[in-house]
């Protein structure tokens, strides 16, 4: 049985990638996924070797064959995304707002609109010392990020099955919307990295509700702790109310961002290696 664990936070900059990179290095064998496809930072912290890369095609987009177009305008009327307008030459053309619904192609009486493949990014399979990493770069500004995450997660499952690896660890995106949903759908466990701040708490509450909806159990690593003990206590209470279990704490320490900037992981810091080792053990035993 393949176990899938997603590292999430709600708030950006809470420490997802730092923690995921350390956990990845501690696991004997693993398939990793960088679910933050438009700000992919996990490969920066890991020594990886690219094995293959492939274009990612999201939704097909509309294309108008202007030689057959009668300028009737039905396409612009139906388009819900304002993606079709007259260009400078007086022809209808499709802009980058197109979400690929094909309503225009359906209503066009002269059938001059086709749906054509559209590359929205690149996905990569890379070798890790102890397994594999699936990651991707969305073309900046593109839609389809949720779909791209789903696609690299499907590849991760395939790689895990083929190679007989039984853990998939996902470094999730921030937020609680489509990309987050795509990252946690079907996982067995979520590890939340919760930054000790009002913002971190607020975003955790949103994330916890989302996770609850998917009926996934969650564990919590408190990060950047120890500055405001009252807030810390309040956060612990809220985690309890939301059914989370706190399985580790990392203090606020200016040495951590400094070390990360040198592309070191938390395992390279003697104070924090034991914390990460314990976290990894607890994560595996849950």
């Amino acid at each position: 049985m393949i176990r899938q664990i997603a590292v999430m936070s709600g708030k950006g900059g809470a420490g997802k990638t730092s923690v995921t990179a350390a956990l990845l290095k501690l696991l004997p064998e693993v398939v990793a996924v960088d679910g933050d496809v438009n700000a992919s930072n996990l490969p920066i912290l890991l020594s990886t070797q690219k094995l293959s890369e492939n274009d990612f095609y999201g939704m097909d987009v509309a294309q108008i064959a202007i030689e057959n177009c009668t300028l009737c305008g039905r396409c612009t009327e139906i388009c819900a995304f304002n993606a079709i307008a007259l260009d400078e030459q007086g022809n209808y053309s499709v802009n980058d707002e197109c979400e690929g619904c094909a309503a225009c192609a359906w209503v066009c009486p002269s059938k001059c609109i086709g749906m054509v493949p559209h590359c929205s990014g690149t996905n990569y399979l890379s070798q890790l010392e102890n397994g594999f990493l699936l990651h991707a770069d969305l073309v900046p500004g593109e839609d389809n990020s949720g779909k791209l995450i789903a696609s690299i997660r499907a590849q991760a499952k395939q790689v895990a099955t083929e190679k007989g690896l039984d853990i998939i660890l996902i470094d999730g995106p921030p937020g609680t919307s489509c990309q987050a949903i795509s990252s946690i759908t079907g996982v067995d466990m979520v590890l939340v990295v919760l930054e000790e701040s009002l913002s971190g708490l607020s975003d955790y509450q949103r994330l916890a509700k989302l996770i609850e909806r998917f009926r996934i159990p969650h564990l919590v690593l408190l990060n950047k702790t120890g500055i405001d003990p009252d807030l810390g206590k309040r956060i612990e209470g809220v985690v309890g109310e939301n059914g989370g279990e706190i399985i580790g704490r990392m203090p606020f320490d200016m040495e951590i961002p400094r070390s990360l900037s040198r592309r070191e992981t938390l395992l390279d810091m003697s104070d924090y290696r034991p914390v990460m080792e314990q976290l990894c053990e607890k994560l595996l035993s849950c």
């Binding site: 950006g12 933050d36 438009n38 700000a39 969305l138 900046p140 500004g141 593109e142 839609d143 990020s145 995106p173 921030p174 937020g175 919307s177 990309q179």
Partner: peptide, 10 residues
């Protein structure tokens, strides 16, 4: 704005 570089940021 939101983080990231997808349609929401745009």
């Amino acid at each position: 704005g939101p983080p990231g570089n997808s349609c929401a940021a745009v």
